[in-house]
């Protein structure tokens, strides 16, 4: 086991992240009550992305992992973006 190389995240950090996640949930619910037209979905997705980043970085401690893990996630996200992007090229310009 490489126990010496992996970081033990203190309770405090996790609780702070949890509070941040609750605040962001409150924000996303409040913003959804205001009619911003098509902008609403983009605001909702941006907030969801911020929440995900916190969960992935701290709760899943990607922040403390070696570069390989970060590059792997990046390539998975690029594949997902290609998947979504190409679908929309087809759907919108058919």
């Amino acid at each position: 086991m490489s126990s010496e190389s992996s970081h033990i995240v203190p309770y405090r950090t996790f609780i702070l992240i949890w509070i941040a996640l609750l605040i962001l949930t409150g924000v996303t619910i409040s913003v959804a009550q205001i009619d911003l037209g098509p902008l609403n979905i983009w605001v909702a997705l941006s907030i969801a992305s911020c929440k995900s980043a916190l969960v992935v970085a701290i709760f899943m401690h990607l922040k403390y992992e070696q570069l390989l893990f970060k590059l792997a996630l990046l390539s998975a996200l690029i594949i997902l973006a290609i998947f979504i992007g190409f679908t929309f090229i087809d759907v919108l310009y058919r």
Binding site: A32, I41, A44, I47, A48, K51, S52, V55
Partner: peptide, 17 residues
């Protein structure tokens, strides 16, 4: 955490449109 992550996107898309 993955289950949580999926819900983070599912919630605004379905409940807050």
């Amino acid at each position: 955490h993955l289950v949580d992550l999926i819900w983070i996107f599912l919630f605004p898309l379905y409940y807050l449109v």
